[in-house]
Structures are given as C-alpha cells and as structure tokens.
Design a protein around this nucleic acid. Structure first.
Lengths: 342, 342
DNA sequence: TACACTAATGTGAACGTACACATTCGAGTT
DNA sequence: AACTCGAATGTGTACGTTCACATTAGTGTA
C-alpha cells in the first residue's frame, strides 16, 4: 500500500515547463499567477505543457521566494463539538481555493498553557494566519497577551473589530428557540447554559435573555452546564423536583438529550410535563424520544466567513461585510403548547 | 485581535545568528540539526544567539533545500464519523512529537475523482506521507493505481502488508457484540451493515459472521445501510413487519438509534420485542430511550498506530508490531434476554 | 618534530520560485 | 519612415536553508 514505487522521477519544475512551451520560465510564472499581459496562445501553450508534464508548483519554493507563507493554521479545542467539523471542512475548501494549505492543531482541552503552546507552534511553523476554533473568552486573552506576529481570526467572534458580526448569529438563533416556546404559550422558561467562559454560551444566553425581555417575561437564573449529555442527565434528575418552569431551552442538543433522559428516569414526561428545545440540530436529534426541537446554524458558512476575514487581514484589505445568517428553527416532538397537557 | 504589530522587523535568518555567534552559517545549521561534531562551547554560543535573536528556522527554505518534506497529510472522507476525530487528535499529537506538521484535507465524499485529486494535491504539496481516513475499498484501488510517490497508511487497514492488524480489532468488537446477544439467549440475529465498499463495514460484518458461526447459529442476509440515523429509521419501520429475528446488531450507533426510533413509531418495543446493539459508543448512546448497548473501540490508539506505521515507512524502518486492541462491550438497556419478554 | 587521522568548521553551489528591471515587439501617431 | 508607448516576454538575482566538498584545528603516534 506504500506507493514508494520504482522510477520515482524528479517532479517537473517551472523551467521544464518553460522549455517544453518554448518560453522563458518567467512567462510560465506569469501564467501561474494570472498576469494580465500574456498573449492567449502563449498561455495555452504553457497550460498544455503544464498538463503534459503534470507540473505542480513547489509550494516551499513559492513560499520562500515570495516570503509570504501559504499555510493557514486551524487551532481547535472543540473538535468533538458538533458544527466544528462542518466548519473545518468549509474553511479548508475556501482556503485551498485561495491557494493556502491547512495545518490543523487540535487540542484536547483549552487550558491557557496548551493554547499558548499551540499558538507558539504555529508561529514557529510560520503560518500566514490562524483561525481559532476555541471559543473561550480566556483563549483570546491568552492570544492577545502573546504578541503573535500573524493575524488571528475566530469562528465565533469575527476577526478584527467586527467581533459582533458572527457571534450575533448564534444570539439570534437562541432568540428564535425561545420565541418558539413563548409562541406556544410558555411563560416560565429555564435556560441551561454552556460554561461561563465560552463565547457561544454567552451568545446563546443573550439570545435567551433578549427573547424573554422582548416578551416581557421574567427570567429564571440560568444553570451552567458543560455541553455534555451527561451533565444534562444529572440536571434533568435534579430539576425534576422543581415546578417553576414549563419549558427549557438548552444551549446545545447534547445537554437537551441528556436532560430528557434525566426527566424520563425521574418520571417527568417530555413534552407533556416539560418542553425541551436544544441548539445545533445534531444528526440524532431527529431520532431521540421524543424527537428534539432545535435550531440549526450554518456552521459551514460561519467557517467560510472566518476565512474571508482572516484572508482580508492577511492581505491587508478591508474586512468583508456579511449580513446576519438566519438560523433555522426545527420543530419536533419535544415542544408543544402547555395547553395540550392534561 | 490581529497581531500585526508595528515594528514587524524582518525575522532573523541563519546568517544573522551566525554573525552574532561568530561562526559560519553552516555551523548554525549543524547545531540545528544535531550534528555530532560540534564543540560544546560553540553550540552554547550558537544557542544563545538563537535565543537573543528569537530565531526560527524558515520551514519553507528548509523544505526547499532538503527536498525532504516535514509535513504529514491527513486525507479524510469521514470527518463526521465518530471515532475519526479522536483518531485525528491522536495522529496529530504523535506526528508533531516526531517533528512533522499536519496538513489536513477533508473531502465531502469519497468519489474516486475527489480522492485522486486530493492525493495529487498532497503529492504536490510534497508531504512526507499520507494517512488515509477514507476506509472505502475503492479508495485504495484509486491510490494504488495512482503511482503515488509517498508512503500511504490507513487507519483501517494498517500500513504496508500488515493490513490485518488494525482491521481485526473491529472484527473482534463486532464479534463481542453478537456474542453478547447470543449469551442473552438470542438465536435469530439480524445485522444492519455499513455500505458495501467500506472496509469497516466488512470488518464488522465479518465479526458478526464469526460469532454466529461459532455459536452454530444460522445467519440472516444482512441489510446494507449507509451509516445514517435516517436510514436506521426507515429500516426500523420496514422491519417492524418481520418476525424472523429477536435481536439486531447495527454496524454503528447512529443506525441503531434511528432503528429504535423506527421501531417505536411502528409500535415495536425495544428491548421487549426486539433487542438492539450498536457500535462506537457515541456520546448520546448513553441517553437515548432506551439507552443503547454498544461496543467501544479505542480510535485514538488506532490513530497512533497508523502514524507509527507511516513513520516507519517514511524512515525506511521495520514496521512496528502491535497486539490486538481489545474493544469494550457496553451493556445498557437496549439488550435483554428474550426470556424476559412477556 | 613530523605524520596521520579525526574532529570541527568553513565555502560554494543548489533547491524552485517571485520580484525588479531590461528588452523586444507591434500598433498607432506624426 | 521615424517615433512613442504600452503590451508581451526575457534576464539576473534574492529568498534561507541544506548538501557536498574543502579546509583548518586538534590529538595521538612514531
């Protein structure tokens, strides 16, 4: 399975292409870089030479000569998290289209030391920029205090000063979830939030508060979770004794699913006794019992935008403007009107 | 948030270090590469010069000059898949410890064209080796027919000739799942397999067949699924009419969960009417209704082993030997003895 | 003290590309 | 026909490192 075959010829260089196309190597370089002043037949000749020789520009040489690195670092501490993966795929696509390759560095946890070390590592690898998928507030403090030489963008806050643009999509999504509960007639709505330090957790909680305020409802103190289904389970058992709410908005689907399990074990029926709505629309959300209402955000688009921001920053160009993403509300069995309960 | 400070001076080169340490640049290079013939005080002088100048070797120049790449490519077509992520994290760790950086290329699908293009891309990025996380049989045909210049290893088949070593862990795990059902007293056990082309699907099906054969039970024709919960759901509705089995072994948890949903909607009770066991132990498996029995395999260790294989191949050293991983059987509510049903 | 041999260091070239500048070409103007 | 000017192409060099080879310093032996 190892392809270290036999006649491993040296790969063709730009000069080989030039020779075959009967032009100078510089002309080839111009074709590669889309220079305007190239006659069309010359370009064709070069392109076909490239084709026949299966020529691929040597990235190392390119990076060296231009002294402009062509690698983008993705620093992730949330690889398990749903959404991260689709964002990563999208980021890669865009980046590769723009001629960058991707170097990923996945952290098991987001401790300041680990983050610092990771950023240093990227710095050392001389990446052109870093995209951070570790949306803890403290991560940015760490990075800020590190004196990094390269631009840094985050999936969750937007690059540079546009910190609001991306985070607010999540806030809107959370609002929609709560508005849905309100529209069903719920008044006492509890929020299971994510960890204090997480930007996403804050965004989603803000969305909850927004919607409650707008509906003129009083809020209950949110419960801080850790995103895991296991936490949701224990919270469910714990909360089964309380009667001061009729619906729960969990900051992610995993906690919502655990929650429903906890309620089930405690004899609390969902949605009859308590309604539950999550956030993310993970694949199993459509198949739990009851199936889970939730909100879907286009993480791939978020990833794409993060890259755009970062590239703009790298190329010293104005930050692109995006409109707010519209999250999608997915209504399933876990949310019903309180009137329907017996 | 972008750290493009102000006095961004040109980074120090090897010659700057040499000048400061009063040696030739070649001596500096030797220090960097751990050459034996360096006097200790010279080394110290160089190292301190490196320190004061905050010198970092330029990776592009290094790769160019040595034409010995220091990047490992991870080619993945299964990023969503559970297990893939933990494997990737582990792969990165090991690879970085050994001085390689990681370039990832995630494919939305595993079409031969896409695979071919991706491998070509890596080839042209001049990676030292490629780890493939796209365990379809045809992928390897594609790669084999491509005349790749670099070593390739797979998470699922083992590198080089040791194709059995890694795949058999999965086979064993599948056997354990079925043995569990047999031990409970089930005799008519149906298998929902993965897509025909997938190595993992084959391994798990073989495990099923192994266990059935060993227990001297006759098998039912497996049903081919596509790994998704949605497929599981439709299969569940479809199968609710049949009475020729009392237990199902699904090739992954997602299908198992969908299956239970389908049964539920069709009025078939799990585990009372039919028992279900999955494979993977994804986080929600502990919180579905009923909670899902399953098998857990140490994907991180698999990843680690794949890197070891690959690095051995790159450095032209003998392939490391590993013992079989022992998967772990996780028994939950979805499997009970058929005697218990009323 | 001269000799050989190894340890330690230095020199010139090469890697494959991009950039700055130099040159040639061709069409339009006078 | 000579002249101008921009479009199209070519030439020299730098990027920062490693490699192959050349040189010098250092140690022991006769």
């Amino acid at each position: 399975m190892s392809g270290d075959g036999e006649a491993r010829a040296k790969p063709a260089s730009i000069r080989d292409v030039a020779r075959l196309a009967a032009v100078s190597y510089q002309t080839v370089s111009r074709v590669l870089n889309d220079h305007p002043s190239i006659r069309d037949d010359t370009r064709q000749r070069v392109l076909s030479a490239i084709q026949t020789l299966d020529y691929r520009p040597n990235q190392a040489a390119r990076a060296l000569a231009s002294s402009r690195p062509n690698v983008l670092g993705i620093l992730s501490a949330t690889i398990g998290e749903y959404g991260t993966t689709s964002a990563i795929v999208a980021i890669e696509r865009v980046a590769r289209e723009r001629g960058f390759s991707i170097s990923t560095l996945n952290l098991p946890d987001a401790s300041p030391e680990a983050i610092g070390e990771a950023v240093r590592q990227f710095d050392h690898e001389q990446v052109a920029g870093i995209i951070v998928l570790a949306p803890q507030v403290r991560v940015f403090n760490v990075i800020g205090g590190l004196g990094v030489r390269v631009p840094v963008a985050s999936l969750h806050t937007g690059a540079g000063g546009t910190a609001e643009s991306i985070a607010s999509d999540q806030r809107l999504g959370a609002s929609m979830a709560v508005q849905h509960l309100v529209a069903l007639g719920h008044q006492d709505i509890l929020h299971i939030a994510g960890p204090q330090d997480w930007i996403e957790a804050e965004s989603r909680m803000h969305g909850y508060l927004d919607a409650m305020f707008e509906a003129d409802l009083s809020t209950l103190p949110p419960i801080r979770g850790d995103w895991t289904a296991d936490f949701g389970y224990f919270a469910g058992r714990e909360l089964s004794g309380r009667r001061d709410f009729t619906a729960i908005f969990a900051a992610n689907d995993l906690m919502a699913i655990g929650l429903m399990h906890g309620f089930r074990d405690a004899g609390v029926r969902v949605p009859d006794d308590v309604c539950v709505i999550g956030f993310d629309d993970i694949p199993v959300a459509a198949h739990t019992w009851p199936t889970l209402s939730t909100v879907r955000v286009d993480f791939a688009e978020l990833g794409r935008r993060a890259v755009m921001h970062l590239l703009a920053s790298i190329e010293q160009q104005p930050d692109p403007e995006f409109e707010l993403l519209s999250p999608e509300l997915i209504v399933r069995e876990s949310t019903t009107s309180p009137a329907m309960r017996r």
